[in-house]
Design a binder for these strands. Structure first.
Length: 941
RNA sequence: GCAGAAGUGGUGGAAUUGGUAGACACGCUGGACUUAAAAUCCAGUGGACAGUAAUGUCCGUACGGGUUCAAGUCCCGUCUUCUGUACCA
């Protein structure tokens, strides 16, 4: 009896697919296209663990399914190969990141190949290849050469802006630009020197240099974007982050805030993910209100969502970092204010977030004027006001806002009540509805909506404010003080940034000796010898040649990780193109990504930035779509089951899990490789693992074994709970791994990895193999007899279920269906060709290797990959369909066993043929059979 | 605080638009094969009660109500868990 030879057959078919380019997508085809994409991985040194392939398996099943369905499927894979870990490793070891990255990619590829994915590897991209990043640089140049026109609500060429300035100055221009952009007349513009004009245009460009507060991470030696900070510490490494002013490249993503919200309507993404993006963009509707200062020319602008409460303002609060603080502070308060500003600046972001309950603040001594009543309003500073949101200043309405209320109580400031019939003894009244305004002049008796509208009208009339929509989304900082990233195609001439010519791209990353900042604090590129730009010859030259006429310094920062990943999906459609990032023809054919699978951790990073860049490229006419990913699925994380051995206070004695009750012990992570599925620890292996455990003693439990405890945690090298897919492939095969990962549970749910049930799935494949290897010596044996009605029924049940499951991405239940099918076929000893052929096509997305092998054994010459998917035919289920009585309440009702597309007559026949029906009818002849929509059949007797 | 998702056997999880709850798998129990173990195969497996038995009856989808001939599924309320996010004015 031959056993299922998964190792040899999987290797055989993987080689076959590579050799025959089975999964290469046709660049031109009459077939409809389908684009299935995985979020490409960062090739880390740790290799893949069993969690990574989950999404890849799901997308692979879908891609293979769509091929069977007659689509020209694009299913590529690549690597997001610029990034911090390779650079950190380079700093420690001196190895070039290019080398380690290359090695890691090779390892990833080896692992991926073992799992039988149907990737079209001829289209592989790597973001760190110069052939790729030259187009990242090219997009940067397009951003630099664009501005955002609010009138047309799209990005336009900068030349259009120059023409507008020439014609009429800034008068008719509405643009997303820096706040301090001066107004100009056409004459003033014309009078500017070229350099002055260039400096002025920087206020408008989609990517611009700005001295801005950034998140500086001293440990990593770089700035971070907001989405790279989690709970006040860096996402990578968990290092503290402080605020710092630096000159940085920024991306004007905030200009797209509204379109990024609106665009969510049209795409099929998970609700929670859309919600996360909406929250991140943070639209809020309200008004800006201008408060004039007593004794100063300057004004304070605040943003409020409650203009209706304008008469309840009793003080203003500024963020300690607010520009005006030092200007308006009175001599008496100067010291106290300076101390407070200093104290807040020294607190890290994290500390500030940690104690939100402590109320602190200082009076500046200055007063503003109420815009409508002219009453004096004291100005305070307090760290509950964030510099980065709105204008960094708030009008405090203590009766309507809890934070203002707490602040007022703490410092004994007045709390005027401006709502009718509510009590604010204990806390502020923060509801917008129901809410009737009182004590507010012309707003009395109005509700929130009406009062807000009237207040805004009054403010506009006086020139003291206007209605405004505010967004939380800030422009994204685009510079990183790192080595391993895309160099900016930028050099500096007279202190002004210039783009290198598109023709001389790529600007290749220079070599450096050490991957650390320079002594002067410049980024690592400051160490490169060859890093100056010869403008005349448009090429990189030695820095010694920098002069004032034609050789200039190049930008030392590099681009962030999200640069390369924001457009890679376009490169796959035409990966070798050296004239364009992709040809119009290819872009027009492949369009959007139809299905995108990846983790939800990219909700506010990659998935937002990609949408931004695509909208920009669309505005500028380079692509015709304005959303990159039509449908998106977040696969749930596969968690690890960590194992702990418990050590008592002696430090060398370990207690079995059943002995730790009531004893003071410390749990120690042990490698899950030493632990059996019954939680039994291989004590000897554990001793050998670390020298410190060599002399450890072990108190065994009642059954004479040493037991560990388990806990579900994220899979991570440091928790020793990583399970390697290679090991599973070696032991059970790729088909088992693929099916088992799907079997674990719903795709979108997080679930712990456990090998407990893997034998069940493996057993299914063995059964399938055995069903068709029942001949002498275990040879392949297949009957050419026609299939029995029962077998056809089983087959068509399977076709129906599996098709529906794939369409609904409910792969886990498909696996069960296959098991049932094979059990049933085994029970009826059915091994006929008529059943096997369609069954293999159904199975091939899930277990492609065994499907190919049996397909070939049937006698087919070519791959199963493009065979048409079987079609469900209800006829085969009808034969054995049954009806049964379900309820008797005046009417007789029957239930069909299965919902079928049957004619009323056919249903009647089935119902009347049923034994129990006959009993219930007791010989009476029914007048008619009523079919209620759905499955219920009424019989009127 | 806010937003989202979810509560079903010992476990992972099934159950199309309301229609025989617990598919399938793991685990467990018993049996066959074996000197023995592994592997493999067969049978049983939500709970309670009754019966020698086939079988029957009742209770069961977090909790309390409701709609319906019929509710895991729909509606109202309560509780719990998970995930994301937060001085956002």
């Amino acid at each position: 009896m031959s056993t299922y030879p998964f190792r040899t057959l999987e290797e055989k078919w993987q080689n076959y697919w590579t050799k025959h380019q089975t999964f290469a997508a046709a660049q031109k085809s009459d077939l409809p296209k389908f684009y299935v994409l995985d979020m490409f991985p960062y090739p880390s040194g740790a290799g893949l663990h069993v969690g990574h392939p989950l999404g890849y398996i799901a997308s692979d099943i879908y891609a293979r399914y769509q091929r069977h369905k007659g689509f020209n499927v694009l299913h590529p894979q690549g690597y997001d190969s610029f990034g911090l870990p390779a650079e950190q490793y380079a700093i420690q070891t001196g190895q070039h990141p290019k080398k380690t990255t290359g090695e890691n990619i090779a390892r990833y590829r080896e692992q991926l190949d073992k799992m039988g994915f149907s990737f079209d590897w001829s289209r592989e991209v790597r973001t760190s290849d110069a052939d790729y990043y030259r187009w990242t640089q090219w997009i940067f140049i397009q951003l630099f050469d664009s501005w955002y026109d609010l009138n047309q609500d799209k990005a336009r060429p900068i030349d259009d802006l120059v023409a507008l300035l020439h014609d009429g100055g800034t008068q008719h221009i509405a643009a997303a630009c820096d706040e301090d952009t001066p107004e100009l007349t056409a004459r003033q513009w014309e009078a500017m020197l070229p350099d002055q004009q260039q400096a002025y245009l920087l206020h408008y460009r989609m990517t611009y240099l700005a001295e801005s507060e950034v998140n500086w991470c001293p440990e990593l030696g770089t700035v971070l974007a907001n989405d790279e900070i989690i709970n006040g510490v860096s996402e990578r490494g968990g290092y503290p982050v402080v605020r710092k002013k630096m000159k940085q490249w920024s991306m004007r993503i905030a200009a797209y805030a509204q379109r990024l919200i609106d665009g969510l309507e049209a795409i099929d993404w998970p609700q929670p993910l859309k919600e996360a993006q909406r929250n991140w963009i943070g639209r809020s509707q309200g008004a800006t209100v201008v408060f004039a200062l007593q004794d100063h020319k300057e004004q304070i602008e605040v943003f409020t969502t409650r203009p209706d409460t304008i008469f309840g303002v009793s003080f203003l609060t500024l963020a300690p970092e607010h520009d005006l603080v030092s200007k308006i502070v009175t001599p008496e308060q100067k010291e106290a204010v300076a101390d407070y500003v200093m104290a807040t600046a020294q607190r890290s972001e994290r500390e500030r977030m940690a104690d939100v309950k402590t109320i602190s603040g200082v009076f500046t001594g200055a007063y503003a004027q109420h815009p409508l009543t002219n009453a004096p309003i004291p100005i305070w500073i307090g760290d509950y006001v964030l510099a980065g949101y709105g204008t960094g200043a708030v009008m405090a309405v203590p009766c309507g806002d809890q934070r203002d209320y707490d602040f007022a109580k703490h410092f004994g400031l007045p709390i005027p009540l401006i709502f009718a019939d509510v009590s604010i003894e204990e806390q502020a009244y923060t509801l917008k509805d129901p809410c009737i305004i009182a004590e507010s002049d012309f707003l009395n008796g109005l509700n929130y909506k009406m009062a807000s509208q009237k207040a805004i009208e009054a403010l506009e009339e006086k020139g003291k404010g206007s209605g405004k929509i505010n967004y939380r989304l800030r422009d994204a900082v685009f510079s990183r003080q790192r080595y391993w990233g895309e160099p900016f195609p930028v050099y500096y001439k007279n202190g002004l940034p210039q783009m290198i010519s598109v023709a001389s791209l790529p600007l290749k990353l220079p070599e450096v000796e050490v991957y650390l900042p320079t002594q002067d604090g410049d980024p690592p590129l400051g160490r490169a010898g060859q890093w100056a730009w010869d403008e005349t010859n448009q090429k990189v030259v030695e820095i010694e040649r920098i002069n004032n006429t034609d050789v200039f310094p190049l930008e030392l920062n590099t681009m962030p990780g999200w640069a390369g990943s924001s457009w890679y999906f376009f490169r796959y459609v035409d990966p070798a193109n050296d004239q364009e990032f992709a040809s119009q023809q290819a872009l027009n054919y492949w369009q959007q990504v139809d299905l995108y699978i990846g983790g939800s951790e990219h909700a506010t990073g990659h998935l937002l930035y990609s949408r931004f860049w695509v909208k920009f490229l669309c505005d500028r006419g380079y692509v015709s779509i304005d959303e990159p990913f039509k449908k998106l699925i977040n696969q749930g994380m596969i968690l690890g089951e960590s194992a702990f051995a418990h050590r008592d206070d002696s430090g060398t004695n370990f207690l079995s899990a059943d002995l730790i009750k009531g004893v003071s012990t410390q749990p120690i992570h042990v490698d899950v490789a030493f632990v059996s599925s019954a939680n039994e620890l291989d004590v000897e292996a554990f001793r050998q693992w670390r020298s410190e455990y060599q002399s450890a003693t072990f108190a065994l439990g009642q059954d004479g074994t040493f037991k560990v405890t388990r806990e579900v945690e994220k899979m991570s090298k440091s928790k020793f709970n990583v399970v390697n897919p290679d090991d599973i492939c070696q032991q059970y095969g790729a088909d088992t791994l693929r099916m088992y990962e799907m079997f674990l549970g719903p795709l979108e749910q997080a679930k712990p990895w456990s090998t407990a049930g893997i034998t069940g799935v493996h057993g299914f494949l063995k059964k399938l193999w055995k069903l068709y290897h029942s001949g002498p010596e275990g040879g392949f044996e297949l009957s050419l007899k026609p299939a029995s009605p029962e077998a056809l029924k089983t087959l068509h049940k399977t076709i129906k279920k599996v098709t529906e499951d794939i369409e609904n991405f409910s792969f886990n239940t498909s696996v069960s269906t296959f098991m049932i099918t094979v059990n049933e076929l085994t029970a009826m000893k059915c091994s006929v060709k008529e059943i096997l052929e369609p069954l293999l096509i159904l199975l091939s997305p899930y277990a492609p290797h065994i499907a190919e092998e049996l397909w070939q054994k049937i006698g087919h010459q070519s791959s199963i990959a493009h065979e048409p998917f079987p079609i469900f035919d209800p006829i085969f289920l009808k034969e054995s369909s049954k009806a049964y009585p379900i309820s008797f309440n005046g009417k007789m009702r029957f239930m069909l066993e299965m919902s079928l597309d049957l004619s009323p007559k056919e249903i009647e026949e089935i119902v009347l043929a049923h034994e129990k029906t006959q009993e219930q009818l007791q010989g009476r002849i029914p007048k008619k059979v009523i079919i209620v929509p759905g499955k219920i059949v009424n019989i009127v007797g």
